[in-house]
Each structure stands twice: as C-alpha cells, then as structure tokens.
Nucleic acid binder design. Structure first.
Lengths: 242, 242
DNA sequence: CGCGATATTGATATAGATCAACTAATGTGG
DNA sequence: CCACATTAGTTGATCTATATCAATATCGCG
C-alpha cells in the first residue's frame, strides 16, 4: 500500500476499507526524483498532489538577500502539496533534499474521492491542517526559542514524526540527511551557529549523529529544552474513537 | 449578512446563492466578548467554530519563560477556529485583543453543510488553508527578516487584509488596537525594540500612527522592506473564474 | 485629577552573525 | 582503487542587532 505511511498517524481508524482502497486506487503514477531539485515554483498552477514515499523533501521561500527559509520539511507518508488542491497554486517552492520517491494523485481524482466519500474528504482536510499545526509550532520555535531550543525542538519533532511512520529503528536511530546549512535554513540560523549548537547538544549527551543518521539519547530532556509538546502532531488521536 | 466579510476575499464568486444562504443560516448565535480575554485553551475539545464579526483576536502559544508568541491574529471576517472542525481540539490558546463580536456555528451544522454542498466544503477547506499560508509567511518573516522587515511585513499584511474586508477608509486608515507589546509578541521582538523600530518607520515617512489607528504612507516601499508579496493571501482569485 | 497601562529613551550586555581559515568527508573520473 | 575535486563540517576572532535593565513620560480612563 503506497498510502500506508500517509494513513499512519492520520486517524486511519476512521476510514472504512472501501475508503482506504479508493484512496490507494487514486494514485496515478510513481516517480523517482533526484536530490536537491526544485520541483515546484511559487505561483505555479497545481493540478495534482504529491505523496512522498521515501526520502526528504521541503518547502521554502526565498529572501531577497539570497538566503532561504524552509517553511516545512517532509518525511515519507506526507502529502506535501495536498493544500494545493483547494488553493490551486502554491505560495512557496517545493524541493527534494535527498533523492525521493513520490506518487501523484490528480486533483480531478481527489474531487471524485471527496464527493463520493465526504468522510475521506474530512480526513484529507485534517491532513492539510496537520501541516498548519506544524507551521504554528515553528512560528513559536523560531519566534521565541534560542538556538539551542530551536535545534532541540527540530530533533524532537523529527524523531516523533519518523516514529509515527515507523522509521525509527530499535536503537532509536532515524535518517537525517540534512546538512547543517539545511538545518540553519529551517531554524533561522547560520550553518556556523548550527554547528556550534549541535556540538553543545552532543557534548551534553542529548543527541548522537553518525553518517546521515541521528538519534536522541535523552528524549525527555531534549523535549524540555525545545519546549516540545507533541499534541500538535495529533498522534494520540489514532487510539481514540471518532 | 453576518458572513459577508468572511466571504469577501474567499472566492465567494464560486458559491451559489443557495450555498451562501445555507452558510448564513448555520450561524447559531452572536456574542460580545470583552477585551483581553482568553476564550479557548490549548487541548480543549472544540464543538463549534467562531466567526469574528468585529474587533481583533489572536491565537498564541506560551513559552516556559512567561513570554508568549502570537501565531496568528484575526480581523473581522476571519473564521478563527474553523480548523478546529477537522482537528477536534486546538493546539494553541485563543484570545480577544479588543472587545469583539463573534458568531458561532456548531460542528454538527458544518457537517450537514459540507455533506449537502461539497463545493461549500471545499471553500471552507480553502479558508483554513489561507491561515496556513499566512503561517508560512510568518515563519519566513520571523526566521529571515530583521526587526524592520518584520514590522514592515506586519503592517503590509494587515493593511491588505483590512482592505480585503473593506475596513480601510478613503485616506487609507485602519484600526490597529495592538499595543507595542502585542506587536512584539507577534513578531518575536521585545516591546522596546518594537518601539524603536516603529519610530524609524515613522521617521522615514513609511507609516503614520494616531490613536488606535494606522495608515501606510508608502505602500510599495514598505512592501519592499518587508519583502511582502501578497500572493499568499489569494485575493486576486476573487476576480478569476473557477 | 490621579492611577495604571503604555510608550519612550538611554546605557549596557549578549546571542548569534559574519568573515576567514582549515579539516574531514564524500564523490568522481581515469 | 586511487587522486583529486567538491562539499560539508569545524574552529577562532570580531562585529552587530537585539535583549535587558532602568528610568521617565504620556495616555486613557474611572
């Protein structure tokens, strides 16, 4: 099931098998994208939505001075431009970070799905609002936390999101193929400062980084530093009746 | 029509009169709220959504150190917790800034509306994604712009949003009942620095502030300082056929 | 009129940026 | 598989925007 990761952590229990199959069947094609490639530009008309199957992607906005700010990054299972369905065009660019595998669903198909299964429509709506909730949390992080807090928040959130799509191994390791530059663009910091901040977190035994993987050694302490309260990911709702 | 301001700037042309009337009829009651009152707490179950009719409201998150970060502020016409409909609970607090007049629509009614008029459902979905688009723009603003840019961005956006709901007078004045403290909480700055930054903008002839009103004297120059590109408000779509 | 909230201004401190090397890793073509 | 090129990471020195602290001025309201 290409949509399995998407449905994890997104109230899948609320869907009937018929709805799940209809969603899966809406996928039109799968494609492999190279790393570091901008796939959509701000302002472009969007006629299909992209489900990320493997790899990391991001959405960003350019500043006049040549720097850019990530507004969201995406892990497998994210429907990264589903908001383009109601919005019809995007207000930001979309790019791969690593090589990525994606699946496309045309907007026409989504319209059919939503009209036939209003309930599934509400789940898709919910999925786009998860992104909005993450945006809010980022505003908080970038607006109110210092460098240590922002990076701690980033790691806490990423671990939680990877766990939700079953991409944590039994030692707690997860892929983190971002450069320190990328991290800086996400957190509103320079790569130099990211470097120093990461070292502090490593020296304090908070995190471990090796190759392009990372793990958090003290989940609670890191969450405290990053003021990370995971309710905004709406994960526990998985276990609640509708 | 209580929903008139809401529909302005939200692709109202895509709605039939029947749909507009159904939306208007869904409003259950109107209430007046005092200034500076928190109306909803993070984590609370939401069973109705709030349409702001007059006044300013905001959504915010508290940091451990006692400071708070606004994640969004709302002008009349905003459906400020419509995202609570798919999400079922909120991940932030909601408060009035000024005295405010609000109208409520229960979630049950929204479900009825959406199932009867899928098209109206898509418009409501669109409305929640406008907030997400504003969130992204704020991440950009707070993450990449300096104090002058952030305040300039804030004023540019506010003017544009007030204009969209017809709350600019013919001299360009609009209500701006925020304290410098509020502005700081929105932009991730201290009130002291907001004060100095506002003075720079005033001294440069960019903005004028009097009483609890403001106007922008040089719209283009201010937009340049704030790197404000209004496409993310999706206003011009008003004039486009669906 | 007087009091609390808000705005203003100045002096000083500091987190993070900037600039500038240098080192380590990763990748690539022969 | 090595040699070299490129990219990413590391470290130090200095600079600057903004925070912090503190005092005063002004506004709006009962």
């Amino acid at each position: 099931m290409l949509t399995a990761k998407f449905l994890r952590g997104r109230r899948r229990h609320q869907l009937s098998d018929e709805e799940k199959n209809a969603l899966e069947a809406a996928i039109e094609r799968v494609e492999r994208l190279p790393a570091r490639r901008t796939t959509q530009r701000r302002g472009e008309r969007v006629r299909q939505s992209t489900l990320l199957l493997s790899g990391y992607m991001c959405r960003y906005m350019d500043a006049r001075d040549g720097f850019r700010q990530l507004v969201c990054y995406h892990v497998p299972g994210d429907f990264l431009d589903l908001h383009g369905y109601p919005l019809q065009r995007l207000d930001h660019d979309v790019a791969t970070i690593t090589e990525a595998e994606v699946a496309y669903v045309s907007h026409d198909r989504i319209t059919q799905l939503v009209e036939r299964f209003p309930h599934l429509g509400r789940l898709l709506w919910f999925a786009t609002l998860l992104d909005a909730a993450m945006h809010r949390e980022w505003i908080f992080s970038v607006g109110r936390l210092d460098a240590l807090g922002r990076i701690a928040h980033f790691f806490s959130e990423t671990r939680e999101r990877m766990k939700a799509v079953d991409l944590l191994d039994d030692q707690g390791w997860f892929d983190l193929p971002l450069t320190q530059q990328d991290l800086g663009e996400a957190c509103g910091l320079t790569s130099v400062h990211v470097n120093r901040t990461l070292r502090r977190l490593r020296d304090n035994g908070m995190i471990e980084i090796a190759g392009r993987r990372a793990r958090i050694l003290n989940v609670d302490a890191l969450a405290r530093i990053g003021e990370f309260i995971p309710d905004y990911l709406y994960l526990e709702d998985e276990f609640r009746t509708p």
